[in-house]
Design a protein around this nucleic acid. Structure first.
Length: 545
RNA sequence: GCACUCGUAGCUCAGUGGAUUAGAGCAUCUGUCUUCGGAACAGAGGGUCGUAGGUUCGAAUCCUACCGAGUGUACCA
């Protein structure tokens, strides 16, 4: 597509003396392979009828080797059909043309709390965006960031210390399977006590403060144990979600002291004092005025994020650093990033916040166990149940594909209404459907004994050409998804691609047909493209299902 | 109150300046079919693209107002 765009640009430059970027798109197959409204773009500067310009351009384009046919439609649209060999040449993978150092947070659940559905969504979006950036040729560092200190730790510790009642051995009685629900129960209990029990409040505040120092041996022991459990749980869930491992875990405790110091060093130039706290006037930058260091001298999340930016900067010297969060934090990040831009002049725009919506269940049913949050384990249980109901075998790679695809197929930014049954459905626009489509193509390839040949004469039959044409769109789709950081474009495309294959497959035999070797090549090309696309989405592409 | 996001078929969503029927999936209805994995294919019904103006040769897409939903709005993250 870029070649033809280039050709049009040159023609326009030569014949009309206009330097423009011709807009080209993919029309419906019946209209050709490429269409362009370049004549309309030229009509105004040239003071000429667009239809007339289109006719002239059509004549010139027909002369090109890569063009088979051109027609003019409507007010002056050009519909261009390319030769088959050009179509084949378009299959070449798109160039790796970027070489930046990129840091991206691909998960950030807090220890001492259960992982919920929002963590899963956040992690899947971020991991897939990381895949896209990596594909461009950039050096990507996946990192994570976790809150290991502060208020929520105090709440959990309150309930935990009461639970063990002086005997740390009691923790050993909690079996591996029960740990996650045990931890969320403890957190829920502590939270409730903080809200409802006046006497507990100061105790919890004190326990929260202790999370910074952890000097009491019993406290330290319980803390360390739950800390380890939490990270085992996080690692387990990340693997289950199909996320690639991170290179480094950053902790709030690492970032805290550093951030507080930086905020102090930049007061009053960047931050200012207000009611004893150090604040940043985010409202001047589309955010809101926010406290970074509290009046009691302790760092808040803002200060820690400043510290985290400093740590990432030292460790990786990133050209771009992505922080993927839910949209609730969008305004906060406007302020934070404006502050960071002042702390590090000339590095404005290095740190970028990508925000996404929240996940809601279509059934409206929430987790019964912990009240208001939906735990990841519960989510997987639902998927497994739905698979069982369908009578299919339950497989981890299919569950993973179902969940990732359901989350990724919607545009990043809006909310996701998650329907468990729809996600595992083998029919329709779902992960398992694509996995099935892949397995089916593999099966054909495995069955044939004929050698696969890339066609040399390049004359395809109409149905073959339709499939080939669809496959050639892949690199454009990947490019768009990468530029916009929008994985859903790939989902939509892969689904259309599979449909196109099914249409072909329905009407045309591959094995024991005269054109078997050419068609095998086509099936293989399709299969490889599908597998590559699924790979970018982090979805397994099984050979059998 | 102010700021940001969103409003497209019964439901869930693509499409965000370009046309020749505004597209998919689910759901509903009808066909094909002893298949290379039918977990398929073909087709039908279903839309004043929230409402009203405006800009443009051309608007679901841009602008304005209004209606409706969500989120944020300093010592939680």
């Amino acid at each position: 597509m870029q070649n033809i765009q280039q050709s049009i640009r040159e023609l326009v430059s030569q014949h009309y003396g206009q330097e423009i970027e011709p807009i080209v798109s993919r029309p419906e197959p019946q209209f050709g392979d490429v269409s362009s409204n370049v004549a309309m773009q030229l009509a105004k500067p040239l003071q000429k009828n667009p239809r007339e310009i289109a006719e002239e351009l059509a004549e010139m384009l027909t002369e090109l080797d890569e063009v088979k046919d051109v027609s003019v439609a409507g007010p002056g649209f050009l519909n261009i059909t390319l030769t088959d060999s050009v179509l084949v040449s378009m299959l070449d993978t798109h160039p790796m043309n970027s070489d930046k150092t990129v840091v991206i947070e691909t998960n950030n659940p807090n220890p001492f709390k259960a992982m919920h559905i929002g963590h899963a969504y956040n992690a899947i979006i971020a991991d897939t965006i990381a895949n896209l950036i990596e594909r461009e040729g950039n050096h990507v560092y996946r990192v994570s960031y976790h809150g290991d200190i502060g208020a929520h730790v105090g709440r959990s510790m309150y309930a935990l210390l009461r639970y063990i009642d002086g005997d740390v051995k009691k923790l050993e009685e909690v079996s591996t399977d029960e740990r996650n629900s045990f931890m969320s129960r403890m957190y829920a209990e502590g939270s409730r006590a903080y809200k409802e029990d006046e006497a507990a409040k100061p105790v919890i505040d004190e326990l929260a403060k202790q999370s910074f120092t952890r000097q009491d041996p019993t406290y330290a022991h319980v803390y360390d144990t739950i800390f380890d459990w939490s990270f085992e749980e996080i690692a387990l869930n990340m693997a289950r979600l199909g996320n690639k491992p991170v290179e480094k875990k950053f902790l709030e405790s690492d970032a805290d002291a550093r951030g507080v110091q930086i905020v102090r060093d930049h007061t009053p130039e960047v931050f200012e004092e207000s009611d004893g706290a150090l604040i940043f006037r985010g409202s001047d930058y589309g955010g809101f005025d926010n406290v970074f260091v509290a009046s009691n001298g302790l760092g808040l999340y803002g200060a820690r994020d400043v510290g985290l930016i400093a740590l990432k900067r030292e460790q990786y010297h990133p050209d771009i650093s992505y922080i993927v969060t839910a949209e609730e934090q969008k305004a906060y990040f406007k302020g934070l990033l404006a502050a960071a831009a002042q702390i590090y002049p000339g590095e404005d725009g290095v740190t970028v916040n990508i925000s996404h919506g929240t996940v809601k269940l279509s059934t409206g049913k929430m987790s019964s166990r912990t009240g208001d949050v939906i735990e990841i384990s519960w989510l997987f249980d639902q998927i497994v149940d739905a698979m069982n109901d369908r009578g299919g075998t339950v497989r981890d790679d299919v569950a993973m594909g179902a969940l990732r695809y359901a989350f990724l197929k919607v545009r990043v930014g809006g909310d996701v209404i998650f329907d468990v049954n729809e996600s595992v459905s083998i029919q329709g626009n779902s992960g398992p459907y694509l996995q099935y489509a892949h397995a089916r193509a593999c099966s054909i390839l495995a069955k044939s004994t004929v050698t696969i040949e890339q066609p040399t004469d390049c004359s395809f039959q109409p149905d073959e050409r339709l499939l080939l044409r669809k496959v050639t769109e892949y690199s454009d789709v990947v490019e768009r998804a990468t530029q916009e950081l929008m994985p859903h474009h790939i989902c939509n495309y892969l689904y259309e691609l599979s449909q196109e294959f099914n249409r072909f497959y329905e009407k045309n035999r591959v094995i024991s047909d005269d054109r078997e070797s050419v068609r095998l090549w086509l099936v293989e090309t399709y299969r490889d493209t599908l597998a590559d696309g699924l790979g970018l989405l982090g979805i397994p592409a099984p050979k059998t299902l």
